[in-house]
């Protein structure tokens, strides 16, 4: 598994070279885009880290976790994952900020950290996607879209918890 990233890098860059892509120029072009993306999402990360940390310092987070415990206990969702799970369907950049916080507080390579990272990279911000896509074509009756997407999301969360628990403990 440690080899995944170096291998991907080597594979993609040499594939580009073989196909006659100007690897260096293209890389720089993409890196610039990456820089802009980071600058764009930074305010969200700052705001979310601030809000979650304030909520934690004031014990508000404990309160929310306590209220939701009957439900999360039933699905064996770790408490530390809750802030992230609550933000995930609502805002992608917000969830990214809370992901960073979750990773910092619990350790990047902890089980909770790995579960949160997995969920972040395997699911999308449902409400946003549905609003944007249907909004763009003026569909008003979305029928079973939201229900199916929410069930899929829930299945994804459960799968992430189960698979990561099996693979990383």
């Amino acid at each position: 598994m440690v080899l995944v990233i170096p291998f991907l890098l080597l594979f993609i860059l040499s594939y580009g070279q073989i196909k006659g892509v100007k690897v260096y120029d293209t890389f720089i072009e993409g890196a610039k885009e990456g820089m802009m993306t980071t600058v764009r999402i930074f305010p969200y990360i700052l705001a979310m880290l601030l809000a979650v940390n304030m909520l934690r310092a004031s014990r508000g987070l404990d309160l929310i976790i306590h209220i939701l415990r009957p439900l999360t206990g039933l699905l064996s969702v770790p408490d530390e994952l809750l802030p992230f799970l609550m933000m995930k369907p609502l805002s992608g950049s917000g969830a990214l900020g809370i992901l960073a916080d979750t990773l910092k507080k619990n350790g990047v390579d902890s089980l909770v950290g790995i579960i949160a990272s997995t969920i972040m990279s395997s699911t999308e911000t449902i409400f946003y996607t549905i609003t944007v896509y249907y909004g763009s074509i003026g569909v008003k009756n979305i029928r079973h879209t939201l229900v199916a997407a929410l069930i899929a999301d829930l299945a994804g969360i459960m799968a992430a918890i189960i698979i990561c628990s099996i693979l990383f403990t």
């Binding site: 440690v2 999402i41 992901l99 990773l103 990047v108 990272s117 997995t118 994804g156 990561c164 990383f168």
Partner: peptide, 28 residues
């Protein structure tokens, strides 16, 4: 993005989540 965040927080193996993520997406 997720790999970058993990790397920037000092993960020993930022890419470890790739495989589980793919499986989770397929299940979802």
């Amino acid at each position: 993005t997720v790999i970058s965040i993990r790397a920037s927080l000092g993960s020993n193996n930022p890419g470890v989540i790739i495989l589980p993520s793919i499986i989770v997406s397929i299940i979802a």
